[in-house]
Simulated assay, not measured.
Amino acid sequence: MTHPADRHLRKLTTPKAAAFAGVLFALLFGAALILIRISLPDGEALGSQWVDGSSHRLRLAVVLMPFSGIAFLWFIGVVRDGLGTLEDKFFATVFLGSGLLFLAMIFASTAVGAGLLATREFDGSGTHSEVAAFGHGLLMALSNTYALRMAAVFMMSLATIWLRTRLMPTWLVVVTYLVAVCVLVASDVSRWMTIAFPIWVLIVSLLMLVRSGVIDLPDEERSPDRV
């Protein structure tokens, strides 16, 4: 027998416009990365960039990061919803785990940066060079060495899911694999390689918005591989 209160319950559905979360993440995360990169020039003593650098740009980047992380969580949810009944436990675990690890390490590295800025405010003379060097080294290890590797695993697992389920066009799968390999191998070579990840998220989000009907394209511009 159905309880009277159950008649007012409704099944939750993912809003079509939720894919805008990926666009928001790409814009916020990309802006934060650019602000950090232009504020931390190469060739200086380890940690001195945070002590002597442009604090207002770094502070803005620290403020943007949490909001970009919230948007990334929404992006993960939208991608999982798109998989539906085609989701496989093995690939879903790798995909979800790598995405959450990436987000956690980005948050941790941002918190270290916020701590370095607080150290500068506490002692404007910048005499704690050892602390600044340790914090800078920890930040770079978390963001470039570990977080970016998780981002590469995130992309590879998602590309494999798309390849086997054929949910996305073949060209996007190929591009995803190429970008993932570049991020995995060259993240320590060029610090600007981190920008590749939010650009990829932006492309995926726009394609999802087109497929969901939120963004309309002329018929001749639609992909023939559309499911």
Results as ranks from 00 to 15, higher is better:
residue 193 M to A: 08
residue 83 L to T: 08
residue 222 R to I: 06
residue 48 S to F: 04
residue 21 A to G: 11
residue 49 Q to H: 03
residue 125 S to N: 07
residue 143 S to Q: 11
residue 129 S to Q: 12
residue 100 L to Y: 11
residue 59 R to L: 14
residue 204 V to T: 08
residue 213 G to P: 09
residue 196 A to Y: 04
residue 183 V to H: 07
residue 115 G to S: 12
residue 182 C to S: 11
residue 65 M to Q: 11
residue 97 G to K: 02
residue 6 D to A: 14
residue 194 T to P: 01
residue 144 N to S: 07
residue 90 F to R: 15
residue 208 M to Y: 05
residue 167 L to E: 03
residue 227 V to W: 14
residue 105 M to G: 02
residue 80 R to P: 01
residue 41 P to G: 07
residue 156 M to D: 07
residue 6 D to M: 10
residue 50 W to P: 03
residue 76 I to K: 02
residue 202 L to N: 00
residue 170 T to V: 09
residue 106 I to Y: 05
residue 204 V to N: 00
residue 62 V to E: 08
residue 180 A to L: 05
residue 86 L to C: 00
residue 197 F to T: 09
residue 80 R to G: 00
residue 42 D to R: 04
residue 159 A to M: 05
residue 24 L to Y: 03
residue 193 M to H: 06
residue 126 G to S: 08
residue 75 F to H: 12
residue 96 L to F: 08
residue 40 L to W: 04
residue 222 R to W: 07
residue 203 I to H: 08
residue 53 G to F: 15
residue 164 R to P: 00
residue 12 L to P: 02
residue 27 L to K: 02
residue 136 H to W: 13
residue 92 A to L: 10
residue 30 G to I: 00
residue 53 G to M: 14
residue 68 S to T: 07
residue 220 E to Q: 11
residue 82 G to F: 00
residue 28 L to M: 11
residue 52 D to L: 07
residue 72 F to H: 13
residue 147 A to S: 06
residue 22 G to A: 08
residue 155 M to Y: 01
residue 24 L to K: 04
residue 92 A to R: 14
residue 130 E to Y: 05
residue 191 R to Y: 13
residue 216 D to P: 01
residue 181 V to I: 15
residue 8 H to N: 09
residue 21 A to H: 01
residue 82 G to A: 07
residue 199 I to M: 04
residue 13 T to D: 13
residue 42 D to L: 12
residue 17 A to N: 12
residue 15 P to I: 12
residue 112 V to R: 02
residue 169 P to N: 01
residue 140 M to I: 14
residue 221 E to P: 02
residue 163 L to W: 15
residue 10 R to L: 10
residue 9 L to A: 12
residue 32 A to F: 05
residue 66 P to T: 01
residue 3 H to I: 00
residue 146 Y to W: 10
residue 210 V to R: 13
residue 57 R to F: 15
